[in-house]
Computed example of a mutant assay.
Amino acid sequence: MALKSLPLSDVYALLEPGPVVLLTTADKTGRANVMTMSWHMMMEFTPPLVGCVVSEGNFSFKALRATKECVIAIPARRLAAKVVKVGNCSGRDFPDKSGADKFRAVGFTPLPAKDVHAPLVAEAFANLECRVVDTRMVARYNMFVLEVVRAWRDPAQKNPKTIHHQGWGRFAVDGRIITLKSEKA
């Protein structure tokens, strides 16, 4: 078997770390925003720490850096078209100072969070309220380390399937679940 060279610009599609999620923020004036994000990773179990990359060109970057809090909302497959729509527009495109225009434009409902000012996304099957706990990699890599301070799950959404970005508009959907013996439960 002969291996074929792969363009370096395609490497990210091989290593996408997890499901496509929504990141919500609220700036110091209370204006909410939502963006699509797929560059994130679990870093620790207890407390749950998540590393995420938010481009400084994104409207949410400034709010996340200033307020040091956000929500990671995890959408199921049925929301894929809306998730892509969020990713193809910017909060700058909406004049409403509350940020509700972008949520409305894509058909998402912002809900108040308990411990952060950023809104939850009602349609997501899970929402993670987060606070930034480490910014040392922001200047160099736009990478924030978040601590999940509260987690929510919609019990009505049984066995949701997540979407995983494979690059250039292609997504994989979670498949069959297998269980293998593990030393830890």
Rank of each mutant, 00 (worst) to 15 (best):
M41S: 13
M41C: 11
M41P: 03
M43N: 09
M43T: 09
M43F: 09
E44F: 11
E44Y: 14
E44V: 06
F45C: 03
F45V: 01
F45T: 04
F45E: 03
P47L: 12
P47E: 12
P47K: 12
P47F: 14
P48A: 03
P48L: 09
L49D: 04
L49S: 06
V50D: 07
V50R: 10
G51R: 14
G51E: 08
G51L: 15
G51W: 14
C52V: 15
C52N: 12
C52W: 08
V54N: 01
V54K: 04
V54W: 05
V54L: 05
S55M: 10
S55D: 11
S55I: 02
E56F: 05
E56C: 03
G57P: 05
G57M: 07
N58D: 03
N58K: 08
N58P: 01
N58R: 14
F61S: 04
K62M: 05
K62I: 05
K62S: 11
K62E: 13
A63C: 04
A63L: 03
A63S: 14
A63T: 02
R65A: 07
R65S: 11
A66I: 01
A66L: 01
T67H: 02
T67L: 00
T67Q: 04
T67R: 08
T67V: 00
K68N: 03
K68D: 01
C70M: 03
C70I: 01
V71T: 05
V71D: 05
I72N: 04
I72T: 01
I72L: 15
I72Y: 00
I72S: 00
A73S: 15
A73R: 09
A73K: 09
I74N: 10
I74E: 08
I74M: 15
P75K: 14
P75N: 11
A76P: 13
A76W: 13
A76S: 14
R77H: 14
R77K: 15
R77C: 13
R78E: 12
R78K: 11
R78I: 09
R78T: 10
R78H: 11
R78N: 10
R78W: 10
L79A: 13
A80K: 15
A80H: 13
A80L: 15
A80G: 05
A81Q: 13
A81I: 11
A81G: 14
K82H: 10
V84H: 08
K85L: 13
V86E: 08
V86Q: 11
G87F: 10
G87R: 10
N88Y: 09
N88I: 02
C89S: 15
C89A: 13
C89L: 10
S90Q: 02
S90L: 06
S90E: 00
G91N: 10
G91M: 07
R92H: 14
D93C: 04
D93P: 00
F94C: 04
F94P: 01
F94T: 02
F94I: 04
P95M: 01
P95E: 13
P95W: 01
P95R: 07
D96E: 05
D96V: 02
K97Q: 09
K97N: 00
S98V: 01
S98W: 07
G99K: 06
G99M: 06
A100Y: 12
A100G: 00
D101F: 07
D101H: 08
K102E: 07
K102D: 05
K102L: 08
F103T: 04
F103D: 00
F103S: 00
R104Y: 04
R104L: 12
A105Q: 04
A105G: 06
